[in-house]
Amino acid sequence: MTRMGTLNRRSALLAIAAVIVARNAQATPDGVKEWLAARVKGKGAPKDGKVTLKAPEIAENGNAVPVTVSVESEMSEKSYVKAIYVAADGNPNAGVITWEFTPLAGKAEVQFRTRLAQTQNLVAVAEMNDGSLFTASREIKVTIGGCGG
């Protein structure tokens, strides 16, 4: 009986701990802003346009959601995309990936696979070499979250 009691207490404590972790481990739109602010060095607020964010509307498996980000740019020495930042507002951490380019890339289009814990918004910000910023965002519905457990 004593053994039973300890087990129950332990599982109860674990359950409480899990709830606390789950509550703390959550990015928010503010988390996305902070993550971007720590990295993006361009001027002013990002404008809509130039950035295309392609991803499935509904992701059945949040473990690997394919995403394509492309930015309109001639990618010449004079005018090129310096960086693309991608963040998510419903994951334990806001950051997803940062790409830094030189004009040698020839085309500012990248693909990757992301993990999404739940239905959330994906945000991409492009920083041009003249410091101007462009952004796009997209909601992805997730059926099964991809953050282990």
Partner: peptide
């Protein structure tokens, strides 16, 4: 490219 935990 700088990858974060959210990469599969």
């Amino acid at each position: 490219a700088k990858l974060e935990q959210a990469i599969a």
